[in-house]
Design a protein around this nucleic acid. Sequence first.
DNA 1: CCATCATATGCCTATATCGGAATGTGTAAA
DNA 2: TTTACACATTCCGATATAGGCATATGATGG
Lengths: 120, 120
Amino acid sequence: MARAATTSDAFNAIAEPQRREILVLLQGGERPVTELARDLGMSQPQASKHLRVLREVGLVRVRGAGKQRLYGLDARGLRPVHEWVGGFERFWNETFDRLDEYVRDLKQARQEEPPDDDDQ
Amino acid sequence: MARAATTSDAFNAIAEPQRREILVLLQGGERPVTELARDLGMSQPQASKHLRVLREVGLVRVRGAGKQRLYGLDARGLRPVHEWVGGFERFWNETFDRLDEYVRDLKQARQEEPPDDDDQ
DNA sequence: CCATCATATGCCTATATCGGAATGTGTAAA
DNA sequence: TTTACACATTCCGATATAGGCATATGATGG
């Protein structure tokens, strides 16, 4: 089996840096494809493809405006991502204090019982 | 060119659901590979492979404990992800109020000038 | 040293990617 | 209708995936 489709969920969709850039640009408001492509230095077809992916996971909305198609942000799909990652918030502060503690304890234990290499 | 490597950054590493599950499990503390594999219903080799990826992006730490290897969480790499996604926080609340507004304006504009199908 | 347990790695298949180039579609103006 | 513009789609190639299976590596205990 191959890697999961980029269209499977927001996690996969935002794994691609260029798509992340598109989303950031769209924070400034709706934009046509060509403008996005130009600003991000990518080809128009590539921009269209990325936008398709973003549309399929619902992170982006299209609206026909005459000859153009304006893409706009729909950030609701990012909320679950934010919440999932947020579940680790306490760990990226605590984890390594704990690890340091553990290391200190280990060293201390060694000094206290030199002949017995129980741990390690 | 193919898709970016899963080992390229945390965004790619957490795009895979099973790896996310591993990280969640590790919130409960260090665990050996076999236990993770069993709890998540995956083969031992698969667990090892996923852990390898997580290790390469620095989301996980290993520690030899006798015959076993205990994997522990290192969530620091998730912080940039959280921050990036957090940059959209105001949008998943505002965006659609704006869109609703836009739609209302559009309808109103149509009623005001019925013969001229300027938009649509 | 040998057997065993825990884990890692290699090989294989099928698939889905991203990028480029060319082309198709749709809308609007001449 | 023809032309022009904006955008979408298709075909191509190279690559990297996830999973299964077999096997190699590594540490422990006898």
